[in-house]
């Protein structure tokens, strides 16, 4: 397990990478392994852990909340408990919170200071979420930002922005789309897009035929 760039490396070759930081972070990782600070296996396990978490976790939480009012209350009041009920690993120091869209209120999530994001239930944040444009504008002109994503909300709907600056990470519980009666939980989860869990979109509407 010396730092020869082979045994146990999460990925072997980086020579196609253009950033000078590709070599620097690899150097840091190799050296930290050699000093016994951590092992390649631990780094690889962390990468796999990150890859395994996607917005499908959030979609499952939402679908269950749509069909089970008690679960919805739990999701809104104790998000981590709701996660463990569905077998989603949300342990770890970060606290999670869920805010509910209704006919009158639409929520939008941003982190203006960095890129705080509820990774256990949404995975890695999309590039645009981390962009300076989104971070600066989502608090200042949320309606204009949502329009860029194709979401035009009526004047009568109150737009509520959450800037997750501290120890909580937020997810939106979108409203159940019309025409989704009688669908299974799995079918409902497929309507829940990542963007609808951040608030720049609403869930897909069920296909009219089939």
């Amino acid at each position: 397990m010396s730092g020869n760039g082979h045994d146990g490396h999460p990925h072997e070759e980086l020579r196609h990478e253009s950033s000078p930081w590709a070599a620097r972070i690899r150097a840091v990782e190799e050296l930290l392994v050699e000093k016994g600070v951590f092992t390649h296996e631990e780094v690889r396990a962390q990468i796999e852990h990150t890859e395994a978490r996607t917005h499908e976790n959030g979609a499952r939480l939402v679908a269950r909340a749509w069909v089970d009012p008690e679960f919805k209350n739990l999701l809104l009041s104790d998000t981590k408990a709701a996660c463990s009920e569905l077998g989603i690993d949300a342990s770890g120091p970060v606290e999670l919170a869920v805010v509910e869209n209704t006919e009158r209120v639409h929520n939008l999530i941003v982190c203006t200071l960095c890129s705080c994001y509820p990774r256990p239930i949404l995975g890695r944040p999309p590039d645009w979420y981390k962009s300076f444009a989104y971070r600066s504008r989502a608090v200042r002109e949320p309606r204009a930002v949502m329009r860029e994503f194709g979401l035009e909300l009526p004047e009568g709907v109150e737009v509520v922005v959450h800037d997750s600056t501290a120890d909580l990470r937020y997810m939106v519980l979108p409203a159940r789309p019309p025409g989704a009666e009688g669908m299974s939980e799995e079918e409902l989860a497929a309507l829940v897009t990542r963007d609808s869990l951040i608030g720049v979109a609403i869930p897909r509407e069920p296909a009219r035929t089939q």
């Binding site: 999460p10 990925h11 070759e13 980086l14 990478e17 950033s19 930081w21 590709a22 972070i25 690899r26 840091v28 990782e29 930290l32 780094v43 690889r44 962390q46 990468i47 990150t50 890859e51 890695r124």
Partner: peptide, 9 residues
């Protein structure tokens, strides 16, 4: 890959 590495480290 190096971005995944930076994240994981």
């Amino acid at each position: 890959d190096w971005e995944r590495l930076a994240d994981a480290v």
